[in-house]
Design a protein around this nucleic acid. Structure first.
Lengths: 220, 220
DNA sequence: GTAAAATGTGAGAATGCGCTCACATTCCGC
DNA sequence: GCGGAATGTGAGCGCATTCTCACATTTTAC
């Protein structure tokens, strides 16, 4: 690896440039889904996109930048998928909300096999801002369910929820279809219990911090 | 990569052989923790272990086999850490059990930085049997808490719990110490709610399938 | 139509890494 | 001691991969 900048080398300024970039990203997803992240080579990606290697390097100075671009695209698509939930959020039961969140996520991963393979890619290729935007979206959804929630709590719950959803993919991936379905159902329980805790008005302390009282049972 | 077998090339038969293997694994962990999995080279690992590259390849025919060995070691260490919980399990509250499970895991990852970096390693280097053993251990712990639980449910809950715990590490890793602590506390809520659902005797259907009844909502 | 900019091309340079091999050294049983 | 087995050594091979570059082609602007 000789170059280190992850920024695109050149932004496409013509229509065919944009088409190329789109084709390259598609090809990258296909190759990565096929052979895994590590084994996916730049030459093969360019080839599958009907381009040659030089063309690829015009827009993406290195593999890392290509990976980041792919991640960004997935992030936006996923954001769009959840965005529609934001409108209905207030009228959904927790039960329904959980089902929607999980099914959208599961469907997304199913339809984008490369997304899973990207988990193997080095951390350096991740874009924190994508996570941030997704967290904020989910936090807003939570706030629609329970407006009295503090923003800090909503954000924290969103971060954890997002991470749990993401983490489960690994488990789904190594299961056959039947087990996967039961795991999804099981995970619904997890999220339902957790979000019920946060989003349901409770008598005792409606806005108490989630830090449990240490007197009861800390680490004994 | 020319060789593909992941089995150790040669089992150490002398004490110095075992010392070498131990030193090599330690060095591998150190290098991987330092520079990440991908950037960790076999030469550097051998060098850091005070050995030369040929010596490394006597015991580990390729990088994959070294990675698997490291994973196996971590798996065993972690299993040992949780094993002690098995004895106390029956006498612990869910609150305490959750705290123990999580803190053991967090401590382990803190003390073994390479463990996190191994998440970047390709899937091929993972050993399903390690996961299986850990799942069974956790399932036994659950059964000690609630003997009436079916083994299938215990195993499924264990698989999910394990995955959630593992997945959270990624979130911890990208947070400063203060946020990390609050995330740990937050995750305790998740597990407490979830395990309360499974391990607490409920009136309606004590051994009903985990398919929720819409209306009761698990606890709280 | 023409010039300039954007994009396309692909052979191969440059690099770095996994891994081998022929041989030296150390250990162990007898 | 002796012989064989286990272990140690490290220069460098082979190879895949990333990335460059000099030039061709297409598009756009006027």
């Amino acid at each position: 690896m000789r170059s280190h900048s992850a920024a695109p080398r050149r932004v496409p300024r013509q229509q065919r440039g944009e088409r190329r970039v789109a084709a390259l990203l598609d090809a990258a997803a296909a190759v990565i889904a096929d052979v895994g992240y590590e084994a996916a080579t730049m030459n093969e990606i360019a080839c599958r996109a009907g381009a040659c290697i030089g063309s690829l390097y015009q827009f993406f100075p290195n593999k890392e930048s290509l990976t980041q671009a792919l991640r960004a695209q997935y992030g936006k698509e996923f954001h769009t998928a959840w965005e529609s939930l934001e409108n209905q959020a207030a009228s959904l039961t927790i039960e329904q909300l959980v089902a929607q969140l999980i099914h959208t996520a599961v469907d997304f991963v199913t339809e984008h096999p490369a997304f899973l393979a990207l988990l193997d890619a080095p951390r350096a290729t991740r874009n924190p801002s994508i996570r941030k935007v997704l967290r904020e979206l989910l936090a807003r959804i939570f706030l629609l369910q329970k407006p009295s929630l503090s923003k800090a709590r909503a954000l924290r719950a969103a971060a954890v929820t997002l991470q749990l959803i993401k983490g489960m993919n690994e488990l789904y991936a190594e299961s056959d279809a039947a087990t996967r379905e039961s795991l999804v159902q099981e995970f619904k329980i997890v999220l339902r219990c957790y979000l019920t805790f946060h989003l349901t008005p409770r008598f005792g302390s409606p806005e108490s911090a989630p830090t449990h009282k240490p007197g009861v049972a800390g680490r004994f």
